[in-house]
């Protein structure tokens, strides 16, 4: 089994942190993983990409991910990018931070899920430098659709990364997203 996930977000949204936390949660589950940041000209607000590879065996490939099983979009405006679904498997999954009923040019065998991670973050007061912190909520959402990593492992890894109140709020964000994710047609 090998499962590949591509995260799309903006510089400053914690995209690389999300990919790494997912990799940590996979290891916590007894699986193997890699978190791969893609380095280009990162700056706050610019589109950024990161990847997570998960397997039940040690991972020895180091080449990039071309055909992800799932795509996670932290900012729905990025859906306007033509390249956003590039390479996604025909049975792939798309998870978007959105409140809208998305009209989206996917192929019928691909499934799309939405969760309003922004409103979850705002409700919990998870705001850093004026931006809602949506990456941890999106991890809860992805845990639900992947079905290979438990929400408890995600929560545990979040609490290990941020001790105290920050950890509690972020793990609650993941839990709320896990409970509120919806499939769209």
């Amino acid at each position: 089994m090998i499962y590949e996930i591509r995260f799309h977000g903006r510089g400053g949204q914690g995209v690389v942190t999300a990919a790494t936390l997912l990799a940590e949660a996979a290891v916590f589950e007894g699986l193997w993983s890699q978190a791969i940041p893609f380095f280009g000209a990162e700056r706050r607000g610019a589109p950024v990409v990161a990847f997570t590879r998960i397997s039940n065996k040690p991972i020895r490939i180091y080449s990039q991910i071309y055909n992800p099983d799932a795509i996670v979009v932290l900012d729905e405006k990025l859906l306007q990018l033509r390249s956003i679904l590039q390479g996604l498997k025909s049975n792939g999954i798309i998870v978007v931070n959105s409140s809208e009923k998305l009209k989206f040019p996917k192929i019928p065998s691909q499934r799309i899920f939405t969760v309003n991670a922004t409103s979850i973050a705002l409700k919990l007061g998870l705001v850093v430098a004026g931006w809602p912190v949506v990456n941890t909520a999106m991890l809860g959402a992805i845990a639900r659709v992947l079905n290979i990593i438990s929400i408890e492992s995600i929560e545990e890894c979040i609490r290990r990364k941020w001790r105290g109140e920050m950890g509690e709020k972020n793990s609650l964000a993941a839990r709320l997203a896990y409970e509120n994710i919806r499939e769209r047609d």
Binding site: W32, Q34, S63
Partner: peptide, 12 residues
């Protein structure tokens, strides 16, 4: 160690 493929890739 190879740039990025090891240096920045997190693994157990």
């Amino acid at each position: 160690l190879d740039a990025f493929s090891l240096s920045h890739t997190a693994a157990p």
